[in-house]
Design a protein around this nucleic acid. Structure first.
Lengths: 211, 211
DNA sequence: TCATCATCATACCGGTCGGTCTGAAACCTG
DNA sequence: CAGGTTTCAGACCGACCGGTATGATGATGA
């Protein structure tokens, strides 16, 4: 559910060799440009210009553009694991934690000026049918999101926050779909309120059940 | 909510000049390749090879790749208007008609082998931030979908099929989000059941209210 | 201090890109 | 039938693409 927040945490700044710092800088820049402009619309030259790193250097650290793409996706996988742990460890009822995740991600969409959207979603639609290796890695991020959501929704069901007939796995898929689709509408309409609409409607329906 | 069904209707086969037939053939081929491979990953050469039309000819009918892109988006706009009219004119309660739209589109996803996804969604994520003209046209398709859904959801609310507190416009946005996000998951996971999960979860929550 | 390794830089490569230019062929109308 | 228009074909263009080869520089350790 990320919107490409770039933390120093992953790009560990302590105890790194000079080469490692260069590698992380390439990775960070590639990540940003793939996110904002798309993988196929981002050239190696673009990355060089933005990062101020020379081509021989880039190719020393990453043997190809494709390998760089894999590394970018891997960085999302690692970062998502950490983010999900933090969000889901917070106090509150299961549904409160679900909505908190949505709300914190929604705020970031707004801060981002409705640009970029979700990097995983962007990669998913652009590359799924043309690069099976990328598709598998993207799936692992979606699986991580859906699995964690499913766990929370099971708790919510046990707590009576959801109708007994609800399938938590299916609902987790639907919630990820709401997020990704909502991000798409926000990005295309340039209107951050749309994600508010989506989340509010979802809550409204879920909570109408409990009324 | 289309999944790139190519009808003969738009590509009018009667009463056309030879040049017009060539133009439609270019358009149809470009549409298919932009849909399956993305706009930036589709070259003019790809279109020439697939359509068996020569470059001078293509550039006679479309002055640039960008103009071809516009024409492709315009063809979706026209086709969507017709499809929505047919689907929403069918008999049944408002919510039945909503679910029928989802189900017919879902079947097509399955028939397509979970490839391609939604052409509008693909364009939206790939091009929204790098081509404002394309973004505006894509928005008109989303607006058409959301407006029609909103109308149906107003009827559903009046008929007692939805909680009184529901905002039809917001719910329409959420439903389009469910569709686009679901298509993304189907395309990435290559599992057509996921859209079934999304729709079932949506129905389950809506119908739990009425129980 | 020197050798080795890691890191960095730049010229160059073949291929592909979107697009242009020029001319040929087909069609249509007077 | 001829002239004009529409449609078509293909060679060529400059720019850009991902990547390689070669060599220079900096860092490290014996």
């Amino acid at each position: 559910m990320i919107t490409n927040r770039l933390t120093g945490q992953f790009f560990g700044e302590a105890m790194s060799s000079k080469g490692e710092l260069t590698k992380q800088k390439v990775l960070k820049t590639a990540r940003e440009l793939f996110y904002l402009n798309g993988y196929n619309n981002t050239s190696i030259e673009d990355i060089l210009k933005t990062s101020k790193i020379k081509k021989g250097n880039l190719y020393f650290h990453f043997s190809s553009k494709e390998k760089l793409g894999y590394a970018v996706l891997e960085s999302y996988l690692i970062e998502e694991a950490q983010l999900l742990d933090r969000i889901f460890a917070a106090p509150g009822s299961p549904m409160e934690r679900v909505y908190r995740l949505f709300d914190s991600s929604r705020k970031h969409l707004r801060e981002q000026g409705c640009r970029g959207g979700c990097p995983i979603g962007n990669f998913a639609l652009e590359m799924s049918d043309i690069h099976n290796g990328f598709r598998k890695k993207i799936n692992r991020v979606f699986d991580a999101w859906c699995d964690r959501l499913e766990k929370l929704l099971r708790e919510a069901k046990r707590a009576g926050e959801l109708p007994p007939s609800i399938n938590p796995k299916a609902l987790a898929n639907m919630m990820v779909a709401v997020w990704e689709g909502g991000v798409m509408l926000v990005k295309t309409r340039k209107d951050p309120r749309i994600m508010g609409d989506c989340i509010k409607s979802l809550r409204g329906i879920v909570e109408a059940y409990r009324a």
